[in-house]
């Protein structure tokens, strides 16, 4: 028995730390979500201290549930997370398969491909929204202007002039607007996280069995069928990992939302919680618990889907 005790003792600090780390915030959140707790109230000063006296039961949950903005936030969260997952996984598989062949300059291409992952999220957001997507000063504005100028110039050209005068003037899109700000977030995060997917898929592709490929070639499978029946099932596990990790990360996006439009049109759950935290801690905690539940549902649902479709 003694030989068991020492390892146990040595593990204890780590286990305690982990328990503390996980359990304390979770139980505090749970506790706050069941009481009335605000930071600031002139009318009811007793609500400004967290106390069991202010028990509210499921009142906070009910309050949040009945807010339209809560449902909008959930909708945005799902839209943003699912689009990013879909785009990064498809692009990741595509790029990984392409650069898995040997070609001159492969080393450099790989390093370049990975580099977006090392940009800080906030910097990434600032770069994208100001330098690329800005309708006036960004690449987008310049490109749209360029196209408009070109069309304008061509209107007076001989033969083709008639054709070009039928073209409308293009309008640059403002990505800070309510209708489009979620797409800006999707674009910039996809750009940043595709390298992560590529990296994971690439390592997995290198362990693919070449004899299986050759057997498939002899069996008459073309490039597409080899991809569909061998490579894709082989990638199922790494895809599941990428989806899992990204789902967790992107459900808690914050910097990008803040920088693109301060939550205008692209408010997700964390941002919504952030707004509530300005005063109503109770409601914010209830939303937090909803977010935990949502994250679990999303994760389970996505993993099931991947398991079903990819594993033949």
């Amino acid at each position: 028995m003694a030989n068991r005790t020492i390892p146990r003792l040595l593990q204890t600090p780590a286990v305690l730390l982990l328990l503390f780390w996980m359990l304390v915030p979770l139980s505090m959140t749970l506790f706050f979500s069941f009481i009335r707790y605000v930071l600031n109230s002139l009318r009811r000063p007793e609500w400004t201290t967290p106390s069991i006296e202010n028990w509210r039961g499921f009142g906070n949950y009910q309050f949040v549930w009945n807010q339209d903005s809560f449902w909008l936030a959930i909708q945005n969260s799902l839209l943003i997370v699912c689009s990013i997952l879909f785009l990064t996984v498809s692009l990741g598989v595509l790029i990984a398969v392409l650069i898995n062949r040997t070609f001159p300059g492969r080393g450099i291409v790989r390093v370049l491909l990975i580099s977006p992952f090392f940009v800080m999220p906030a910097v990434n957001a600032v770069l994208w929204i100001n330098m690329i997507l800005d309708p006036v000063l960004g690449l987008q504005g310049i490109a749209v202007n360029g196209i408009n100028d070109f069309i304008d110039g061509m209107r007076t050209a001989p033969v083709l002039g008639g054709f070009f005068s039928l073209w409308p003037e293009f309008e640059p899109i403002s990505f800070r607007a309510t209708q489009t700000s979620a797409y800006a977030v999707i674009m910039m995060v996809t750009w940043q996280w595709t390298p992560f997917a590529v990296l994971i898929f690439m390592t997995s592709l290198q362990s693919e069995d070449q004899q299986q490929k050759e057997a498939a070639i002899l069996d008459g499978a073309g490039a597409w069928n080899q991809f569909r029946f061998l490579t894709l099932p082989h990638l199922a596990r790494p895809i599941a990992i990428v989806v899992m990790i990204q789902a967790i990360f992107h459900l808690s996006l914050y910097a990008e939302i803040e920088i693109v439009s301060r939550g205008n049109g692209n408010k997700n759950l964390p941002y919504y919680i952030g707004e509530l935290v300005n005063n109503n801690i109770g409601a914010a905690s209830a939303t937090g618990i909803f977010a935990v539940i949502l994250a679990n549902i999303v994760a389970i649902f996505l993993l099931r889907m991947i398991g079903k479709t990819l594993m033949e």
Partner: peptide
């Protein structure tokens, strides 16, 4: 038709 040393069966099927 070829039979390989490592069998080369498709593991997911």
């Amino acid at each position: 038709a070829m039979v390989f040393q490592s069998y080369a069966l498709y593991p997911h099927m």
